[in-house]
Amino acid sequence: MTSNDKIIEIEVLRYRPEQDEKPFLQSFKVPFTDDQSVLQGVQYIKDYLDGSLSFRWSCRMAICGSCGMMINGVPKLSCKTFLREYYPGKITLEALKHFPIEKDLIIDLSDFINKLESIKPYIIPAAPRTLEQGEYLQTPRQLDRIAQFSSCINCMLCYAACPQYGLKPDYLGPAAITLLHRYNEDNRDAAKAERMQLLNAHEGVWGCTLVGYCSDVCPKDVDPAAAINRNKLNSTMDYFLRFVAPRGGN
């Protein structure tokens, strides 16, 4: 710490399950330079002020998706957000909204992982190819249909932005539906009929009321709201085609 460092106040919503009945705010004074991220701010707290503070991080470059937290009420990647943006004001940090707090800034993400698994986020081909037959082919234009939706880093900021997920935890939610859409739209995949069942359910696309905030907060411009709402049309078609074709519209 040099003498010309600025000092910013960082308030953290602490919760230590062994001691605390409920979360409480704790304030820290953190010296920083203009090139430091909010993540570096909490790392400073852990290294120099309170070693018991718990939070997740890994890549420090906005790609692993593990450092998401509420920064002044807005879900953000803490490694991609700079302390200088808030100075001379203070910063309030809280674990990602709508998830149970495991400890301090760490959430229990098992619900999201289960949902992610349930949509079968992998290519299920109609007929598996042998090694001799080579890879599954895709043209640049076919890739273009799904490229945007495949850049999701599973950071869950969109879940923290979605009040419907907070109100109805059964809702499949933005990122899971977006990945479902990404695999359904993939020309190499043949499991659409299976996945449509999840989409058509009350907990599927119809849980969305188009608040649209998920797309605003997404750090990768995935636009989950678009993926979800396009599937309202798909889900409606699937429903009506069911009367005409026995296996749905696929």
């Binding site: 399950p17 149970p100 009040p163 907070g166």
Partner: peptide, 13 residues
């Protein structure tokens, strides 16, 4: 010692 804390949604909007 797990005791995940669920935050209330009251007044969310």
């Amino acid at each position: 010692t797990r005791k995940p804390y669920v935050r209330p949604m009251a007044g969310w909007w």
